[in-house]
């Protein structure tokens, strides 16, 4: 049976068998789920449909969340993305649209819309937005769906060797993992081989190491919604760096090992308890009082 417990193993199986990473991940999934390749790919294509619906809805969203803290920023960014000349966005239209998509999916999440947790609900905008950016420049549906298996493989390895939950590893575990998944998928879509996928993951994870989880009033909104926008840009840059031939000095599995240790070292107050960081700022306290009373 095909199995892997870290990224080096995943990459070397892909190399030995001359397969892209997504095929290795699909083969393992067929084995553990006892389901056919078609069935598994169909389920992923359905998830991609839900992701795209959430992007469309998000880009046009004007609705505020239950708490009133978020809603409408994705649309703002989208409208801004097409400005030209001296008003043109610094990052260019494509990147700003990707950020808008990521923020939008998270806004949809906050208004109780339908999303695909990827790997979690708080980080659900990052991978879809990265794929949306690839689609805008012509990637085929098939390639996009298959790249989600590469993303999943990366997430599985991080889940196994570090964490994908904010409550145990801080936000590096949620948005950090999502960005790594997105970066790896983008490299594969652009034709980068398995090693470059690994480099993109290493580069991406390194940059978000130590990111804490300190949501205001305990809600998946501040800083989560806008952070999804930042994280997709970070993922795109990590993919571009890897594709340009840049290598991480620290090998990818060691980076994930560091992520695990950092997650464990984070105080509980910065792991989704809303007892530290942004959540205890005077403004956050005021918001909490307004929402929940004294």
């Amino acid at each position: 049976m095909i199995n892997f417990s870290n990224l080096v193993e995943l990459i070397s199986i892909a190399r030995e068998k001359s397969l892209p990473i997504h095929e290795v991940v699909i083969a393992r999934e067929m084995h553990i789920s006892l389901r056919s390749r078609e069935h598994i790919i169909k389920q992923m294509a359905d998830s991609w449909m839900v992701m795209q619906e959430s992007i469309e809805r998000g880009l046009n969203n004007t609705e505020k969340s239950l708490s009133g803290l978020t809603g409408g920023d994705a649309r703002r960014l989208r409208l801004y993305s097409s400005k030209a000349g001296a008003e043109a966005p610094y990052l260019g239209e494509a990147a700003i649209l990707a950020a808008a998509a990521a923020v939008g999916v998270n806004e949809v999440n906050a208004v109780m819309g339908r999303i695909v947790a990827c790997p979690t609900a708080g980080s659900c905008g990052i991978v879809p937005a990265a794929l949306y950016a690839a689609k805008q420049r012509g990637a085929s549906e098939e390639k996009l769906v298959l790249s989600l298996f590469t993303a999943a493989g990366i997430g599985m390895v991080i889940d196994q060797n570090a964490s994908i939950s904010g409550a145990s590893g801080g936000c590096q575990a949620e948005c950090g993992t999502a960005a790594a998944m997105a970066a790896g998928a983008l490299v594969e879509i652009a034709g980068g081989g398995p090693e470059k996928v690994g480099e993109a993951v290493a580069l991406s994870v390194k940059n978000l190491l130590g990111l804490v989880c300190d949501p205001v009033a305990g809600l998946v909104e501040v800083p989560c919604v806008k952070r999804n926008g930042f994280a997709v840009i970070e993922a795109m840059l990590a993919a571009d760096m890897a594709l340009s031939g840049i290598k991480s000095v620290i090998p990818v599995d060691e980076v994930i090992g560091a992520m695990d240790k950092i997650g464990r070292a984070l105080p509980k107050s910065l792991r989704e308890t809303s007892q530290g960081g942004l959540a205890v700022t005077p403004t956050a306290r005021r918001i909490e009082r307004e929402l929940y009373g004294e």
Binding site: N3, E29, Q43, V111
Partner: peptide
């Protein structure tokens, strides 16, 4: 190790996997 749809998934109504989907 989990399967792919534990990582890319579940499809759910937001905002929180623990406080809403769970």
């Amino acid at each position: 190790m989990h399967g792919v749809f534990d990582i890319v998934g579940p499809v759910m109504i937001g905002p929180s996997s623990s406080h809403t989907a769970g």
